[in-house]
C-alpha cells in the first residue's frame, strides 16, 4: 500500500514522543544553565600551571625548560626564563618562569604540553565558561592567572593527580634516601679517617645528580 512506510515512520516518531513523557531514559537532554551534567574526569579545556603548597610564586613546579613552548602545535605559549634560581620540590635549585603566558584564543586544547612536560608542572583544566569582554588582554593568561594549587588538580582529575603525586613522592624519597646514604658514607669515611688509618681518604662523592 502506498504510504505504509510513511505511516510506520510516523508511528515510530509518536512512540518516541510519547515515550519521553513516561520513561526518563528517553529524556536525553538537560536544561543546561540550570541543570548540568557532571564533568567527565578526562575532560579538558585549557592548560594551567600546578603549584605545591600555599604560595603560587614559591611552589610553582615549572622550571622554565621551554619544552612545551617548542612542542606546542599552534605556538601559543610564551616563556621567559628567570635570571636567578629557586629550590624545587626536592630542594634542587632550578630556574623558574619570569613570564609564562598562554594565549587561549590560539590554544587548541590538544594536551601535548601536558604530555611533554617532564616536571608534571602543566595540566589541563576543565573550566569552559571563559567568556570575556576583552578579546586581547582577557584571553592572554599570565602566570598569576594560570597558577592553580595542586588541590584544584586533585579536584578535577583525581585519578591522574594521585598517580602524579605518587610518582613525585617516590622521586623525592629516592633523592632523600640517596642524600642520606651519601651523608652516612661520608660520615663513615670521616670516622675511618679520624681513627688514624693511613689509607688515603676516598674522594668525596659528587653531589646528587638531578632527577631525570
Amino acid at each position: 500500500m502506498l504510504g505504509e512506510g510513511i505511516i510506520k515512520g510516523m508511528a515510530e516518531t509518536a512512540k518516541n514522543f510519547l515515550g519521553s513523557y513516561h520513561d526518563p531514559e528517553r529524556m536525553v537532554t538537560v536544561q543546561f544553565p540550570e541543570e548540568r551534567l557532571p564533568a567527565k574526569e578526562a575532560a579538558r579545556s585549557f592548560p594551567f600551571l600546578v603549584f605545591d603548597g600555599q604560595d603560587a610564586e614559591k611552589g610553582l613546579r615549572c622550571v622554565a625548560c621551554q619544552i612545551c613552548e617548542k612542542e606546542c602545535p599552534p605556538q601559543c605559549i610564551y616563556i621567559t626564563k628567570s635570571k636567578d634560581k629557586k629550590p624545587d620540590y626536592v630542594g634542587k635549585a632550578q630556574f623558574y618562569p619570569a613570564v609564562f603566558d598562554i594565549d587561549i584564543s590560539v590554544c587548541m586544547s590538544c594536551q601535548i604540553c601536558v604530555e611533554v612536560c617532564p616536571f608534571e608542572a602543566i595540566k589541563m583544566d576543565n573550566d569552559v565558561e571563559l567568556s570575556n569582554t576583552d578579546r586581547f588582554g582577557g584571553l592572554l593568561l599570565n602566570k598569576q592567572l594560570l597558577a592553580k594549587p595542586n588541590s584544584h588538580f586533585h579536584k578535577i582529575h583525581p585519578t591522574e593527580a594521585d598517580e602524579v603525586d605518587g610518582r613525585l613522592a617516590a622521586e623525592k624519597a629516592k633523592v632523600e634516601a640517596k642524600a642520606k646514604a651519601d651523608a652516612e658514607a661520608k660520615a663513615k669515611a670521616a670516622a675511618a679517617g679520624a681513627a688514624g688509618a693511613p689509607a688515603p681518604k676516598p674522594a668525596p662523592k659528587p653531589p646528587t645528580p638531578p632527577p631525570a
Partner: peptide, 23 residues
C-alpha cells in the same frame, strides 16, 4: 570524551600505541 578528554578533537593515538589507557 571519557576516554580522550574531548568529544570531537580526540588527539588520542600516538606513534606506537595510544595516549592513555581505558578509564
Amino acid at each position: 570524551e571519557s576516554l580522550s578528554g574531548s568529544r570531537m578533537m580526540c588527539n588520542y593515538m600516538r606513534f606506537g600505541g595510544c595516549r592513555v589507557d581505558l578509564p
